[in-house]
Design a protein around this nucleic acid. Sequence first.
DNA 1: TTAATTTTAGAACAAATGTCCTAATTATAA
DNA 2: TTATAATTAGGACATTTGTTCTAAAATTAA
Lengths: 201, 201
Amino acid sequence: MTTKEKILETALKLFNERGTDQITTRHIAAEMKISHGNLCYHYPKKEEIIKKLYEELVQELDNEISKVQLNVVSISLLIQMAEITFGIQLKYKFFLIEIVKIMRDIPEIKTHFRSLYQKREAQFTFIIEKLISESLFNASLFEGNYEKIIKQFYLIGDFWISEAEILFEGSPEEKLRTYVEIATAFFTPYLTQKGRAQLTG
Amino acid sequence: MTTKEKILETALKLFNERGTDQITTRHIAAEMKISHGNLCYHYPKKEEIIKKLYEELVQELDNEISKVQLNVVSISLLIQMAEITFGIQLKYKFFLIEIVKIMRDIPEIKTHFRSLYQKREAQFTFIIEKLISESLFNASLFEGNYEKIIKQFYLIGDFWISEAEILFEGSPEEKLRTYVEIATAFFTPYLTQKGRAQLTG
DNA sequence: TTAATTTTAGAACAAATGTCCTAATTATAA
DNA sequence: TTATAATTAGGACATTTGTTCTAAAATTAA
């Protein structure tokens, strides 16, 4: 691994533990046992480290989600997507915990995230429509309006880590499992009998 | 208004605008046109200002929520409680935006918030049970287990401001109205016909 | 091998920031 | 009025922190 890669890795670890404020470029260098000057040779601006980590997060989500086949939707697919997403989010948890601060500081990230959010909204609308057409979701509950339920779900999906950071005690694995369950349980009232059968089966 | 009170008021305004990191004790003093030394006479520790503002937030929520009569529950009561809570949260939005960071820095607040959360969970369980006994909520969806739905709802209730800070464009009033609607829509799939009638009525 | 490039270490700098100290001013109470 | 206490202003201090600079060391290429 190159020094440049190792810096990202170490920064991610420390940011996740204590946040980007508390962790200085000197901390990162010390953790790696390289000089502070060396770190600043590779990343003259601390902000660049954060930007790069954000790009990694987006990339990773993109890669993993694109692997999921969306030709045939199912309840287990929904759960699978939540597991994948939550797992990657947990890996970059500092970003979700400090999302507002980071977007205040780095407008490019804010702009990118906002357009990403719109894409995600469209994707999810598509999935819900498919679930309805497969008689897995109960259409009558929506009245053709998926906006609010999507916003509700993404709110949970983007901030579960922050809540867990305050309230949850246990290993990251337990945390992931617990909150995937909380998040996927969100859909239960929308399920048809057929959908519910898929859930238990 | 005493200087001490004015400091809190000014700090709240500036914290809400730019966050507790960006706003220094010097900023607060400058905004008030008092000396930095004077501010530090009243609040030698910046942390004390944040603590005091948190106490105000808790107090205000407590006062306003305790006014609501819970003898007879109804859907409109649920909405009313959301409106009250969201309004007060918006007044202290810096706290909700920086909730993880603040609780990392100030353990007393974390401890207090966690016990408060437990109380809120119990209160909400009580309300849901009442709504079920009044045939406003559909009992069959819960199977006597309210934990997940409560966690989902409080997640929305505690982090809607953070999401709005990134995504929403509009006045605080519009913001409040929009997110109260998103949050209360969370309950629609749980409503019985009777409950739904109350909603539209 | 030698020259050029990249990487590393260490020091230095300037700006910011929370905190503390002292003296002057103002308000309060005897 | 006078003395006591509270408030205010201004400056000083030490620390932290991101950033820059220089020179040595290591690596690469010719």
